[in-house]
Amino acid sequence: MSNLHSREHWVDSAQGKLFAQEWVPAQAQGAPIVLLHDSLGCVALWREFPAQLAHAIGHRVIAYDRLGFGRSDAHPGVLRLGFVEDEARQGFSALLEHLGVEDFIVFGHSVGGGMAVACAAAFGNRCRALITESAQAFVEARTLEGIRAADLQFAEAGQLQRLQRYHGSKAEWVLRAWVDNWLAEDFAEWNLDTVLAQVRCPLLSLHGDNDEFGSPAHPERLLAHAGGPGVMRLLQGCGHVPHREQAEQVLAEVTQFLR
């Protein structure tokens, strides 16, 4: 992928600096694809996927660390109810402004998928397409079971160090922001239905049939409530991270969808 040019950026947001990286093909075409990471993720944890995506599609690909994650500044407080929907007007909006992005395609993984829905809704006249991968559309028992199991795993000796590799001293905040929000009583009724109704662009919803954090009820609900046309792809024998587990399949689905 030597014909890709990669650049790093520091984006000023209302609450601190955000780290962003872009991958630009030599003959970049079409709207840039903006990636939104999962609850424990960051730019570095997308690994090879952004470069693979830029190479396969021929579009500029942009990923950023949300406030409190990766190389971005620490978050000054705790995430509040509504944090999924709010990202569209916070970090995402600051990123678009800093990079001078007008029209865009948004691609979100896990909770980033929910945030991508909010971005497509908030910037309806600029969002060309919405891609969700393993996104949660509501609070499901399977989601909460997966989170409780992960919380126990991270409590074991040395496990938090896996997160510290990517988030440094922010690792404990990152873990609690995920676990405590999703398990909170006031989050139990959360869903994306209202926001989905405001989405007008085409939607591609990718989901693994073995996703430990959500059943196929999630992509089904995304398609049922989205205001625009939608396509659902259930990936066989795939867990929560299709872009790592079945990268070729994900790239093929995205390529076909964007054509």
Rank of each mutant, 00 (worst) to 15 (best):
M1N: 09
S2W: 02
L4F: 09
H5Q: 14
S6R: 15
S6I: 14
R7C: 05
H9N: 05
D12M: 02
K17G: 09
Q21E: 15
E22K: 06
A26K: 15
A26T: 13
Q29Y: 00
P32T: 01
L35F: 04
S39H: 08
L40Y: 12
C42M: 11
W46M: 06
R47Y: 09
E48W: 07
E48D: 15
F49R: 05
P50S: 07
Q52F: 05
Q52K: 13
A54V: 08
A54M: 05
R60D: 07
V61D: 10
I62Y: 02
I62W: 00
A63E: 09
Y64N: 04
D65H: 03
L67Y: 10
R71E: 09
D73G: 07
A74G: 15
R80G: 08
R80C: 08
D86H: 15
A88W: 14
A88R: 10
Q90C: 13
S93P: 00
L95E: 06
L95T: 04
L96M: 12
H98D: 06
D103Q: 15
F104R: 01
F104I: 01
I105Y: 07
F107Y: 14
G112P: 09
G113M: 10
G114L: 06
G114K: 07
C119L: 03
A120I: 07
A121V: 07
A121R: 06
A121S: 10
R126K: 15
R126D: 04
C127Y: 03
R128C: 03
L130I: 01
T132C: 01
E133F: 04
S134V: 01
A135Y: 04
A135K: 04
Q136M: 14
V139Y: 06
E140R: 12
R142Q: 15
E145V: 14
F154E: 05
A157G: 02
G158H: 14
Q159R: 15
L160S: 04
Q161L: 13
Q161F: 01
Q161W: 02
L163H: 08
Q164L: 01
G168P: 08
A171N: 11
R176A: 14
W178S: 07
V179Y: 07
W182N: 08
A184F: 00
E185C: 00
D186C: 00
A188D: 06
E189H: 12
N191K: 05
N191A: 03
L192K: 06
L192R: 05
T194Y: 00
T194G: 05
Q198D: 10
Q198C: 08
V199K: 12
R200D: 12
S205C: 13
L206Y: 01
G208D: 03
D209P: 02
F213I: 04
G214D: 01
H218N: 14
A224F: 13
A224G: 11
A226Q: 14
G228R: 13
V231W: 03
M232L: 13
R233N: 04
G237K: 02
G237T: 01
V241R: 06
R244T: 13
Q246I: 09
Q246A: 12
Q249F: 00
V250S: 02
A252N: 09
A252Y: 04
F257V: 11
R259N: 11
R259C: 07
R259A: 15
